[in-house]
């Protein structure tokens, strides 16, 4: 290899620097939010309802709203997303026009910005289907947004299944569906779980699409047809309307800590998947 020239050393230095910049950005953003937010945090902040548009009190209804919306989105998207993955990997010929079309539309869906989903949810669910600004409209919109993630992670998991598993099951006389239910789906479970965890992360952080579909009412939602405000939307309102910087930091803290936990779980389940 010979000696490394000074010029090469300089260039290597630049590469190291860019790696450091990434770490620096991440650490300073998360560190800053946590350091400022932790001062606001107490049990009252988590468990009480906001007062005076959020300038006092806690964020309890926004936590519950986030939970409802995420659950509804998962209940809708997981069966459909996993079903689509099974169909694409186990039934459709990869050369078929239909499989090509589904893959193309799934890719397109994954690239569409959330504001477009918001517009669609608003015109189709809120107005055309008359669901109004509600948990239902928001949850369905969110389900559409996480569908590509659920399908892709399930597809990837199914793809890693050794072909003998499938062949042995079929050779033992199991039908195709029995093979899917007893062999393929259990095997793909870690992949499906990863998709679900990633989707929860997306749901917790989503803002633009939910402002247009779930609204921003601060009350505690009593039914699927009530409007709701998630933690992220609450953070946006507090910061943009200048209601309370302190409360905004507290909310940002809760969101960031949730994202950290979700990310940790996703890494765990990805590791299990690759094993």
């Amino acid at each position: 290899m010979g000696a490394v020239s000074i010029k090469d050393r300089f260039i290597y230095g630049l590469f190291y620097l860019s790696g450091l910049i990434i770490v620096g950005i991440l650490v300073s953003i998360i560190g800053y939010v946590i350091a400022r937010g932790v001062l606001v945090l107490n049990l009252e902040f988590i468990l009480e309802s906001p007062r005076h548009a959020g300038s006092a009190g806690g964020i309890f209804p926004t936590i519950i709203s986030t939970l409802y919306l995420t659950l509804l989105a998962l209940v809708i998207a997981v069966p459909i997303g996993v079903g689509a993955a099974v169909y694409l990997e186990e039934y459709a010929l990869s050369s078929s026009k239909f499989a090509w079309l589904v893959n193309l539309t799934a890719e397109t869906l994954a690239g569409i910005p959330s504001i477009i989903f918001g517009l669609f949810g608003f015109v189709f669910l809120v107005i055309f289907l008359g669901m109004g600004w509600s948990i239902l409209s928001g949850g369905i919109t969110l389900a559409i947004m996480i569908l590509p993630t659920i399908t892709r992670t399930a597809q990837e998991a199914i793809l890693t299944l050794p072909p003998e598993y499938r062949e042995n099951s079929l050779a033992l006389g199991a039908s195709k569906w029995q093979t899917i239910r007893k062999v393929i789906l259990p095997f793909a479970l870690p992949g499906i779980v990863t998709g679900v965890i990633l989707s929860i992360g997306r749901a917790v952080g989503e803002t633009a699409a939910l402002i247009l579909t779930a609204g921003s009412s601060l009350g505690m939602p009593q039914s699927l047809f009530d409007p709701a405000r998630t933690m992220s939307v609450h953070l946006y309102m507090l910061a943009m309307e200048g209601i309370s910087l302190e409360r905004a930091f507290g909310t940002a803290f809760v969101v960031v800590v949730l994202i950290l936990i979700i990310n940790y779980l996703a890494n765990l389940s990805l590791r299990r998947l690759s094993r």
């Binding site: 953003i29 998360i30 952080g205």
Partner: peptide
């Protein structure tokens, strides 16, 4: 980097 990708845009906006 995956963590960076997971931080919601509203948090970036806030910071």
């Amino acid at each position: 980097v995956n963590l960076l990708a997971g931080i919601p845009s509203v948090v970036y906006g806030f910071v």
